[in-house]
Design a protein around this nucleic acid. Structure first.
Lengths: 248, 248
DNA sequence: TTCGATTTGTTCGTATGTATT
DNA sequence: TAATACATACGAACAAATCGA
């Protein structure tokens, strides 16, 4: 009874699996549409339909005359720093209330190369409590003032050899680091937001009174192939900044 | 030097303009792709490309064997009440922390058919301060407990004849009412979130102490044709509920 | 229930334009 | 300039879903 899925869906899933397996990292183009059509034994239009889906899901980008690529997260951020285009800021949602878009400066406050996964964090990443994790605490400044405090939890097995120097000395965003060095291209985030009274360890770095209302953001970053790669707990001071969200 | 836009984009914009002008309301199908192709003097594939874009933007939905329609907001909500599908809950982001998805029950606390637009609200809707507005205050309950307090501001000129009875006696969501009665199909929202100390008028209905941290959501709802139709200030008690957001 | 008309969904193939190297 | 790769547009055939006669 089960009708088989259309050919373009088979091709799309096949491509996504190859991308998740690490073929065609961010710099290298996929085979041309003509070659893919030959490989799959189908018309070029069918390949285009499959790629269209992956482009819509932000897994791939097309460059006319050049080829089709996994997007380079940091390259997009660099090219469009003061642009109105959303894509560069896809994962950076805290902006000044006047609507300007500015990428934050980040200071590494703490780094631990191997800590057991807390029980509360484990289910969000599909892990068992106690799994070895990398932990980092970042303070993000927009302009001069501290605005966001991030706690990052990374499954150690996905980030082999990541140490404090590599983390702090990265060139670009943490997601760029994940992509370039470990092949994890983040394409989606699931976020849960709450208003909470600032705990003391959060209030201090943000320059707030303990108990002041802060925005608590729990984010799971998901890489190509639906693999969760990072759990992040952020606390944001929203007196002069806002969390922007466009649903379209 | 300015290359003219491709044909499919011209067709897409033409269709969107027609939809924004009120042709083809939610129940009635668009002309078939073959008819549209004849009308625009192009191939059927070109029409499909244009419609593809509008489907991706959630402006249209296709039904094989039936036709292409503007989606009926309430019908989607009814069909998928306890479904995992996101679409029905596109505009309802507050959910119990356990992840269940439940549509809230709404109680109308206040309704004013004609109030001048406050100066702080005017720019968000592209209006002048003092423009006549409809104002409503809703209390949303999830399960038994009050969770969200909404203040709605609607440009009166867009909602002629809307009175308390029609507003309170609606069948379905407010966005369903906007669509069925006034032809405003909301397809996008821009939201700005902050954590604030609950003002007294908010704390009372939510059963909170004044000053407790609450999530403040400022939302502009945008209908087909990029027309802002509603400004909503919500305050949510996030002790037992969360604001969910998936970026994909 | 069956059948046919209508409409969208899938797949094929071709030709030409535009951007990049 | 030439080769390559994606973008646009055309056209055709058949499949699958829907609806009414």
């Amino acid at each position: 009874m089960n009708a088989e899925p259309p050919l373009w869906r088979i091709i799309r899933d096949s491509l996504e699996a190859a991308l998740a397996a690490g073929e065609y990292p961010a710099g290298t183009p996929l085979p041309s549409e003509a070659k893919l059509a030959a490989r799959f034994g189908c018309a070029i239009g069918t390949v285009r339909r499959a790629v269209d889906e992956l482009v819509a899901a932000r897994v791939l980008v097309r460059r006319q005359g050049r080829g089709t690529f996994v997007p380079d997260i940091d390259a997009m951020a660099r090219l469009r720093r003061d642009d109105a285009d959303r894509t560069a800021f896809y994962f950076f949602h805290i902006h000044p209330e006047d609507g300007r878009r500015v990428l934050p400066d980040t200071e590494l406050l703490e780094f631990r190369g191997a800590v057991p996964c807390p029980a509360w964090a484990a289910p969000h990443l599909g892990l068992a409590a106690g799994t070895p994790m990398v932990f980092a605490r970042n303070l993000q400044r927009i302009g001069a003032s501290p605005v966001v405090l991030d706690d990052l939890w990374l499954p150690k097995v996905l980030f082999p050899g990541l140490d404090r120097a590599a983390f702090a000395g990265r060139d670009g965003t943490v997601y760029g680091l994940y992509q370039r060095r470990f092949g994890h291209s983040v394409i989606r985030t699931d976020e849960r937001l709450r208003a909470v009274a600032a705990p003391a360890p959060v209030a201090g770095p943000l320059g707030l009174e303990p108990g002041a209302p802060v925005l608590r953001i729990q984010r799971v970053a998901i890489a190509i192939g639906d693999r969760p790669v990072e759990l992040r707990i952020s606390h944001a001071d929203t007196r002069r900044h806002e969390y922007f969200n466009t649903l379209a």
